[in-house]
Amino acid sequence: MKKKESSTQSNPSPKTVDDYFAITPEPARTVLEKMRAAIRSVVPRESTEVISYGIPAFKHKTVLVWYAAFANHCSLFPTASVIETFKDELEAFTISKGTIQFPINKPLPIALIKKIVKLRVQNAQS
Rank of each mutant, 00 (worst) to 15 (best):
T85V: 14
V63M: 11
R36V: 08
Q122A: 15
D19A: 13
V65Q: 04
V121A: 02
V31A: 13
Y67M: 06
L64S: 04
E84H: 05
E46I: 07
L90F: 06
I95P: 03
D18A: 14
P12M: 04
N105G: 13
P14C: 08
Q101E: 11
L32N: 02
V63N: 15
T24S: 11
K97M: 10
N11C: 02
Q9M: 14
V43H: 04
Y53R: 11
K61G: 13
F86K: 04
S10W: 03
S6M: 14
T79Q: 15
F86I: 05
P44S: 10
Y20R: 04
V121W: 01
L32V: 03
T94H: 13
P109W: 06
S96V: 12
L90P: 04
F102V: 07
V50H: 05
V63T: 14
I83M: 06
S6I: 12
T8L: 15
T79Y: 09
T94V: 15
K34L: 10
T99I: 12
P25L: 11
V31Q: 14
N105C: 07
A124D: 06
A71F: 07
P44A: 12
I104L: 12
E46Y: 01
A28T: 06
K97D: 11
R120F: 01
V121K: 01
I23M: 14
K97N: 13
S6N: 13
S10N: 10
K118T: 09
Y20Q: 04
L32H: 04
Y67D: 04
T24L: 12
E91I: 11
I116R: 00
M35W: 07
V121F: 03
I113W: 00
I113P: 00
E89Y: 00
S52N: 13
I51P: 02
N123E: 15
Q9F: 02
P44F: 11
S81C: 01
I113T: 00
P27N: 12
T99K: 07
E46T: 10
V117Y: 02
Y67I: 01
F86R: 02
S41H: 08
S7A: 12
P78M: 13
F70Y: 15
T48A: 08
P107E: 15
I55A: 06
Y20E: 05
A68E: 05
S6W: 11
K118A: 03
S96Y: 07
S52V: 02
L108S: 05
E5L: 10
S126K: 15
E33P: 00
T62S: 10
L76S: 02
S13H: 05
S75T: 11
A68W: 08
L32C: 07
G98K: 07
R120A: 03
P25I: 07
F86T: 01
S10V: 12
I55H: 05
E49L: 12
D88V: 03
E46A: 14
I23K: 15
P25C: 09
D18C: 06
S7L: 11
V117L: 09
P103N: 09
R45V: 13
R120V: 01
K4S: 09
F21H: 08
P14S: 14
L64W: 02
S41W: 09
I104N: 06
D19R: 04
F70W: 15
K106N: 06
Q9R: 13
P109I: 09
K114G: 04
F21D: 08
F77S: 11
A80F: 05
T99H: 06
N105T: 14
